[in-house]
């Protein structure tokens, strides 16, 4: 899938968290948050990452942002493996990968004005010289996301949740990044405000060649926003492919379960949704991580973990021994 339009390539990323207070060398239950995830993001593309809480999607976001660097694996952004960068080089590349966080209440410094918050990336990267230039760019960024340039004087607590999230988006976009990681950008907002923010994001993408990594537990949102859907379970990708394919004809039983559990995703919720929780987070042994909840599990599933593989010509890849045929 590598070609000139590739913006981000995540290669076989692993991240394990040691439980707090574990003794070095002790074989405590390490949390394997992300296990061998690879994905590619092209220019102008939105990749939606879905999965239930604890499936490792936020860990993956933190890895892509290099806030919590992966244990192993590469994160190649525009030809540069970021896991090899340190200090200044990493900070410089961060201008081109920005992030919008889930909770706009806690992601903005309450003691800075909106203008200072949005101006900070410009200052940090020396993109605007002088008070006046920064003010002008902040004003442009604010109107770009549907806020009033005069809101620059306000403090975050003077804005509504939706307005704060707009400010968070303005902060991400003010430095004109190639890639924006959106970590559940709407799940802390009211439904009506959610729709506005999603429309804003769609507009912002339509007008540029910017790529988005959109992380959400909400399949309806991902199906609206993304070109490519990546379904994660227990720290692994279980299914990925064009969003229409994945959501209309799920090959993996877990995707099926997710769709069943989602009202408004084109199906009526069924009571047959697989019972059980992700036990994954802790050790899953050697078999398929989904085996305990899988309605179609066979003996092999408990012994051999399925690899992510292409099953047909639609571009869908699935990690299942018995994928449903399209």
């Amino acid at each position: 899938m590598t070609n000139t339009s590739t913006v981000l390539e995540v290669k076989d990323v692993h991240k394990t968290y040691k439980p707090a207070g574990s003794v070095v060398g002790a074989k405590a239950a390490h949390v394997r948050a992300v296990q061998g995830v690879s994905l590619t993001v092209h220019r102008g593309q939105t990749v939606g990452i879905v999965g239930e809480s604890g499936c490792g999607k936020s860990t993956l976001a933190n890895a892509i942002l290099m806030l919590e660097p992966p244990d192993t694996g590469e994160i190649v952004f525009d030809g540069t493996d970021m896991t090899r960068l340190r200090g200044g080089a990493l900070r410089r590349i961060r201008r081109r990968i920005q992030c919008v966080f889930q909770d706009p209440y806690t992601a903005l410094n309450a003691r800075m004005t909106i203008g200072q918050i949005i101006g900070e990336p410009l200052r940090v990267h020396g993109l605007a010289k002088g008070r006046r230039a920064i003010k002008a760019q902040v004003g442009t960024a604010l109107s770009h996301v549907g806020l009033n340039p005069r809101d620059a004087r306000r403090y975050p607590h003077e804005l509504s949740g939706g307005q704060r999230q707009r400010a968070g988006i303005a902060r991400a976009l003010v430095v004109d990044p190639q890639l924006v990681v959106l970590d559940e950008p709407t799940s802390a907002l009211d439904v009506s405000v959610q729709a506005q923010i999603l429309n804003l994001l769609l507009d912002l993408q339509a007008e540029s060649e910017r790529s988005f990594v959109f992380i959400s537990h909400d399949l309806a949102v991902v199906s609206q926003m993304a070109h490519v859907a990546v379904v994660m379970y227990a720290g692994r990708i279980v299914e990925s492919g064009p969003v229409e394919e994945v959501f209309s004809r799920p090959r993996h039983p877990y995707t099926d379960v997710l769709l069943d559990a989602t009202p408004g995703a084109g199906r009526s919720p069924r009571a047959t949704a697989a019972a059980g929780e992700t036990r994954a987070a802790l050790d899953v042994g050697q078999g398929c991580p989904f085996v305990a909840r899988c309605p179609i599990a066979q003996d092999t599933c408990a012994q051999v973990a399925p690899e992510l593989r292409s099953v047909d010509a639609t571009g869908v890849e699935v990690a299942c021994h018995f994928p449903r045929s399209a």
Binding site: R154, S160, A195, Q196, A220, H227, G264
Partner: peptide, 23 residues
């Protein structure tokens, strides 16, 4: 991609409108 129209409530546009100037 269609524009999102999830239960857009026309009476609640506060999230989208610039606030009127603060007194």
């Amino acid at each position: 991609m269609a524009r999102v129209d999830i239960q857009a409530d026309p009476t609640n546009l506060a999230g989208g409108m610039p606030l009127p100037d603060s007194p």
